[in-house]
Design a binder for these strands. Structure first.
Length: 462
RNA sequence: GGCGGGUUGGCGGAGAGGUUACGCAGCGGAUUGCAAAUCCGUGAAGAUCGGUUCGAUUCCGAUACCCGCCUCCA
């Protein structure tokens, strides 16, 4: 059995990973709020934890349960639906909200599929678990960890001494530096909402505290409990969620089930950056996965760029990296074409097992390519979600280049005798201009589609 | 202000207390009608200042700069 080591954010140390139940390794990752297209930053945790999922499945023989939720209760979704209704869209607010979340989930699936991310075993929607959330909130009130006030239910952070442990903060420090306005009904400024009232313009569910909707944090606590139980192995998400979201999840879940561990290992991916800054709408450096795909950047290329940097470090997205990744993948794809995958290389598995050292694993892929082990390269790449048949269409020419190769070879034969290479060079230049890589040797002529290949520009070359 | 992360060769980016990361680019060579591709070889590093050590880029401390969180942004 391969020893997996993971950096545990709870202990701030790299630890040997030992599953609670090797027959069912359980992972929960915070998924998207489905109000709009996923931006490139949203894709990083997807690729990171997809790679973890693939590794765990490889090591534990597929006995892994991976849950990633959809947050479909959110004020931004409500706002979109309300705006559509006010613009004259037909249907109830609930129906318009459902329409919005449905289309967004569809986009999300399409975009993440393009990155080679496997679908998780469960993708729960928060709206389907409101009953479980209400039950959990009732339990917290009964245990003295939460209180109702003015239609809200709040978590009492002072009732949980470990509050702040994950993010390394003390409640007193947080209050000192807090910039939030404190609602008058809070017992402590850091108390957070478990349930809040909804007016008639907002979706709501009946509860012991009146018609309302759940707070964000309780959603993940309830869904992980329902699908994975009170103790599970790994909880993942972006580092920006560490506080307050994950801190609050821990408080809720550990207070509701003090006998259990909740998540044993916490993994956080660092932020994706563009030009050295976090991607955000306010900075104007914002673009979606779909934008890149539409620009012709293949999902496989995006994935390889992501895997080039360790998940725990900030990663800068640049066009230069995309170009290099594309060139690398073209080379590898040419090498593994038509080859049957064997088994993933030991060195690749070792690298991945070392806290998901994907950059190290890529170095091993280069080593396999240099050795000419195409079968091992293919299998190893596929373990990392690369080099699959399904993702490879972008690297294909889409047209048969053989006739062009034959034509060029014929011109060359003539030129060799006539000592006039002008016609050969002219055709070669045209092919290169169309993005074709031209390889001539004693053995003959070989043509391959290269970066920026454009079949339309082959017109008239035969 | 509080908390956390980072600073590696021209660029990207890892591991390791002492031995080549790796990729791209560069340089030299083989090969080629010329190229491309490929192959062989090769130079180049660890923010600054201290400390521990026989030895640190790797451990510890300080300084500088960068980034993130503290706002339901992954």
């Amino acid at each position: 059995m391969v020893t997996i080591r993971l950096h545990n954010g709870k202990t701030r140390a790299k630890e040997v990973f030992t599953p609670i139940d090797p027959e069912n390794v359980r992972v929960y990752v915070c998924g998207p709020t489905v109000y709009d297209r996923a931006h490139l930053g949203n894709a990083r945790p997807v690729v990171v934890f997809d790679t973890l999922y693939r590794l765990l499945r490889h090591v534990y023989g597929g006995k892994v349960t991976y849950v990633r939720n959809f947050t479909d209760v959110d004020d931004k979704i409500n706002a979109t639906a309300l705006a559509r209704q006010q613009a004259g869209a037909a249907g109830s607010l609930e129906a318009l909200i459902a329409e919005r979340t449905e289309e967004t989930i569809g986009w999300y699936h399409a975009d993440m599929d393009a990155l080679g991310a496997l679908r998780p075993d469960h993708e729960p929607r928060a709206t389907a678990y409101v009953g479980a959330m209400i039950g959990m909130i009732e339990g917290l009130i009964a245990k003295g960890h939460a209180y109702a006030a003015e239609g809200h239910v709040l978590f009492d952070v002072r009732s949980y001494p470990d509050y702040g442990h994950l993010s390394g903060r003390s409640v007193d420090d947080m209050i000192a530096g807090a910039r939030v306005e404190v609602a008058p009904y809070k017992r402590d400024p850091m108390d957070f909402v478990l349930w809040k009232p909804s007016d008639e313009n907002l979706p709501g569910w009946d509860s012991p505290w009146g018609r309302g909707r759940p707070g964000w944090h309780i959603e993940c606590s309830a869904m992980s409990l329902e699908l994975l139980g009170p103790s599970f192995d790994i909880h993942g998400g972006g580092i920006d969620l560490q506080f307050p979201h994950h801190e609050n999840e821990i408080a809720q879940s550990c207070c509701a089930h003090p006998e259990a561990d909740f998540a044993r290992v916490w993994m956080h991916n660092e932020m994706l950056q563009v030009e050295g800054k976090k991607m955000s709408k306010s900075l104007g450096n914002f673009f979606t996965v779909r934008d890149l795909l539409d620009q012709g950047v293949p999902g496989e290329v995006i994935r390889l760029v992501f895997l080039g940097t360790h998940y725990g470090r900030p990663m800068d997205w640049t066009a230069e990296k995309a170009a290099q990744a594309e060139a690398t993948l073209r080379k590898w794809r040419a090498l593994v074409k038509g080859v049957e995958a064997s088994v993933p290389a030991e060195a690749v598995i070792e690298a991945l097992a070392d806290d998901l050292n994907t950059a190290g694993a890529i170095a091993e892929l280069h080593a396999l390519a240099a050795k000419g082990d195409a079968a091992g390269l293919k299998a190893s790449g596929q373990l990392m979600g690369l080099l699959s048949e399904a993702m490879g269409d972008w690297a294909e020419a889409g047209v048969d280049l053989a006739p062009y190769a034959a034509r060029l070879a014929a011109l060359r034969e003539v030129a060799m005798v006539a000592k006039d290479f002008a016609p050969v060079d002219a055709m070669k230049a045209a092919l290169v201009a169309a993005g074709v890589e031209v390889r001539m040797s004693k053995a003959g002529v070989e043509l391959l589609p290269g970066p920026g290949f454009d079949a339309a520009r082959l017109e008239g070359l035969l």
